[in-house]
Design a protein around this nucleic acid. Structure first.
Lengths: 227, 227
DNA sequence: ATAATACTAGACTGTCTAGTGTGGTAAATT
DNA sequence: AATTTACCACACTAGACAGTCTAGTATTAT
């Protein structure tokens, strides 16, 4: 069930590749239109879910419906493209999340910085909306859900794991189960706030609260693992 | 608040109250039909979200469409009734979650028991589906989302808080911020597993894994708070 | 210029769905 | 028995929406 179709993710775009392919005769497709469509569709899908209509997308992108269909084969593919581009935009889960953290930084500060960045990402209203849409569409688009999770929280977890390993090697932390500990840190960090955001019970976490919360989390984490 | 009062959130059921109201003349509405509709609708809504059609509901309940509309004013109300009945069914968040825990039980075991029950609830496939549907419909039905959260995770948190207070008073735990500590325990417990379930990336958490996970969580929690 | 392709506006098809209307039957109350 | 209401089957309205088609215009390469 996982795949029988090798070109399902990545590109099934027949003529969208701009740079590489043979330049076909006639007027080329406008990259701007494509971007406009993608942008408009993202907004609408994140706001209304797959309930948003193709007509609405076309109108919001200031483009004819035909053009939408000329750039994207259908609604599902447009949806996929939207989510993928969003994931790429945010580049979250990138090892970049701890790229510029100096190995000399005290453990506590390093952990604080990492969790703070993670929170900024997954508490971002667009990402929350994405989370909602993806989870509600998970059964229809299982690979997108997987992609989101792996490059999102999963990726961050890997990055945190790497950081922890450094610090264990440096003797700053007790030996630990990297995988478990990394998740534990993230679990403590997002937990209930994330749930409340997803249910629309709060619109954001006040900066000061978040700050205090994360300090507390890091402190607790160190209480467990500090050497 | 947890008896079978069907008209719970702001009513609007004209003639459904079975016991209390004046008995009107003529044939009474069948409670069985009502239950059948509710049951069928719940299944469908949890499976397909609000995309499920009223015709499908009627058919699945083995009832005419008219009858559906005679018991429930419209789709939204039916949806509300479904979620509310589900919430009541599971009775989760009830203080009952720690009802039969002997105050003499060692802290660790008590915490383990509580988290285990909580996990059994929110990892139940029906509840996961509910979570998905509610979050995707949160903007259209804000009060339902709030109800779910408060009687669900929020209620469990309160129960855990009460337990913690007992144990602090008994001198088994260091004084702590009850609210924060209770969330911390639950956050650690559900965290990533819950997310993976919601994305459909796993269908369940193997019993053995869950057991080990919770042992670990409780141990970490105690590392922080044990006196 | 010519051919090829992108794009537009809007009509159109087929399908699906929430909700209503109709006319008749079944079960309860009085 | 008379009445009142629940229920059924089914047709129907009205609207939405994915996706296609048409016919004309714009933009590019050759």
């Amino acid at each position: 069930m996982s795949d029988q179709n090798p070109k399902d993710l990545s590109e099934s775009q027949p003529a969208a590749a701009p740079g590489a392919g043979r330049r076909s005769a006639g007027r080329p497709k406008s990259e701007e239109k494509r971007a406009a469509i993608l942008h408009a569709a993202s907004e609408l899908f994140l706001k209304r879910g797959l309930g948003a209509s193709m007509d609405a997308v076309a109108q919001a992108a200031d483009v004819s419906k035909q053009t939408v269909y000329s750039h994207f084969a259908g609604k599902d593919e447009l949806f996929r493209a939207c989510i993928q581009s969003k994931i790429a935009d945010y580049g979250f889960g990138d090892a970049g999340i701890l790229a510029d953290i100096d190995p000399a930084t005290p453990v506590g500060d390093a952990l604080f910085a990492v969790t703070q960045r993670f929170m900024a990402l997954i508490f971002d209203p667009h990402v929350v909306a994405m989370h909602r849409v993806i989870s509600s569409e998970a059964s229809a688009h299982p690979r997108i859900a997987a992609l989101f999770f792996e490059t999102g929280p999963g990726g961050t977890k890997a990055a945190v794991g790497a950081l922890l390993e450094q610090r264990v090697a440096a003797g700053e932390l007790r030996p630990l189960d990297v995988n478990y500990a990394a998740w534990q840190l993230l679990n403590m960090a997002f937990g209930r706030y994330h749930m409340q955001l997803q249910f629309g019970l709060i619109k954001s976490v006040p900066k000061a609260d978040l700050h205090a919360h994360l300090r507390h989390v890091v402190q607790d984490f160190l209480a467990i693992y500090k050497v």
